[in-house]
Design a protein around this nucleic acid. Structure first.
Lengths: 194, 194, 194, 194
DNA sequence: TATGAATGAGAATTCATTCAT
DNA sequence: AATGAATGAATTCTCATTCAT
């Protein structure tokens, strides 16, 4: 635990930012919970902002890896899209803090002109765009998907996925498993024959 | 301009909260921009929190009215859903501040246990749920829509609409009009014959 | 109740000052509880200070009347001193608020150089001095009391009475009726034969 | 002077609280007079309240020590009571500030439900009670004192002592040395043979 | 690498008091 | 006699950040 204090600080900050947001997480709070003193924060990092940036980037890195680890070869092209949807639902359950951080703290910082957040949001957009573009292109070429215009369809799918992600994370997940309905919904639209 | 100072305060606060978020909007800032002195805020309102609540609620009231003013009688049932989608895209263009406020400041406050925000988010959910439920039920009964399970379909549509709304508001609206694609997408899924 | 608003203000202020002290009683609080608006306070009085002065003086007037109404003719001279002691114990029970005001709020204001309080405390001192001086002088002349030096004895008796008064008012009156012991105590000291 | 800033703050606060009371002593005032900046108060203490508590408790500790240092062995039992009376007169001369603080600021805070003050007042009561109880019991057993009921006599003596203490502290000590009269007064009452 | 002490800059809030009517 | 609206002047407290060691 006391091995790497620098990492301790980041982990603690990550948790606190996720639990209380940026403003309500104080440098003193981070220091205390990490078992260090405040000046050490300033020895290791340039300031609160930098810590926040690092935390955000770390989370995004994990997120990107999850997306990139999705199976590249599936029985059908549509399965890839279904996987993407299911993955987001899963993250909302397994990484609620991180998800909340990106979905709540990030937009709040965006409004204040925080470049890291803008950057992360942009990256997430691009990441999904690439994944979806490739999948759609291949599916259309193979005749599996209808011949929808790709950029627009990608945008729609992205909105849907992000919408589901946010809904799962922010709302108490009372409204039961509608994710398979989402999968079905996309299938109806995308597949040529159904 | 100096007619009703109370309203001036609310309007100014609304703008500032939307532009800079809750934390970065100071009571002094609101007062200055509204052309009044700080203590007047405390004469008219209980504090910063109350002002924020009022602003949020006011915006939500406008939003609800817009949804409720959507035409109740349309040529097809699906048209109602298309209208709902288009309405959100429109709001993102005509009321960017308000939209940003609800989409950014609200989630940020949620994380801090702010009941107004929770309340508004819940209300928005219920508002859309009602609208969509009714539309779907009628469409299914009339045979226009496929016989999807209503609660799940409602949830999916809500996520899609919110996703589009957020995407339009938060991202620079570079990626052109994909909203008609979204309409098309829903049509493909929902309509029995297409 | 709404007959004489000016008097309502004083009564309300009296109660609030006694309950919460000078600082924690706000002009708005007085106005609200008296069922009037703040500016009316300033129409009738010069300010919070004046109200406080009036209240204090009113209470002291009542107090003086009580002292002056003590029976002038008693079987023995000592009885007058016993009466004075008992009267203070009685006030502490019948007028706890007023007593608290004079014993708590007044000293607190004294420290801040408040002339009314100084005045009232001085007056109370003189009032008791006169009463005791006269009683002692007569008792000594008649041979009932020992030939103690009057000013010093007066001072001691005054301290004792005020001490009892304060103790009764401020402490929860758990420690039972020691007042008759006080009477006995004085009797032992003062009376020539016992 | 600038050696131990924490102690400087307490000393300064003590003086200011005694001179101007709780409300009229501001944190900024304390800081300025102590030659430090305001936030330092909040680094060392939790807030104004805590500083006040510490000051009050520190004074009471001194007071208790003085009482406890009174000679345990005296030629007569009554001498102990005389010592207690004289000690209070002495304190009023040597520690006017501290005495004023406990006699003025404390009651004022009591009315506002300040537990420290209640605690200190209660402790002072118990301290005197113990001292007086022991002295009286021994004196009665040895036949030096009359066989008065102890609790009541203790209460009376306590009231007298506190009354003298307060009178000495609050009033300009014009009325000369009546303390020996008080001693005499008690002696007359308490001693079996005089 | 680490810290105890310290601070500049502000933030929200309160309150006695006044002005215009 | 009465008030709704308004304010000047404080006041307590917080926080990111730095300095000396």
């Amino acid at each position: 635990m006391a091995r790497n204090k620098k990492q301790d600080i980041i982990s603690t900050a990550a948790r606190l930012f996720a639990q209380h947001g940026f403003e309500d997480t104080t440098t003193l709070g981070i220091a205390r919970e990490a078992g260090v003193t405040e000046p050490l924060l300033y020895y290791h990092f340039r300031g609160k902002d930098e810590i926040f940036s690092l935390v955000i980037r770390e989370f995004f890195t994990q997120y990107r890896e999850m997306v990139q680890k999705l199976p590249a070869h599936t029985s059908t092209g549509f399965e890839k899209i279904a996987n993407l949807i299911r993955m987001h639902v899963e993250i909302s359950a397994t990484h609620p803090h991180q998800a909340k951080l990106i979905l709540s703290a990030c937009p709040a910082m965006l409004i204040r002109g925080y470049s890291v957040c803008w950057e992360v949001l942009e990256n997430q957009k691009n990441l999904l765009n690439e994944y979806l573009q490739k999948t759609l292109r291949e599916g259309i070429e193979s005749g599996e998907f209808k011949d929808y215009p790709i950029p627009e369809t990608v945008a729609v799918l992205r909105c849907l996925i992000n919408g589901i992600f946010r809904n799962k994370v922010m709302h108490n997940p009372e409204d039961a498993a509608y994710e398979e309905m989402a999968v079905e919904f996309c299938k109806s639209s995308l597949l040529r024959d159904n």
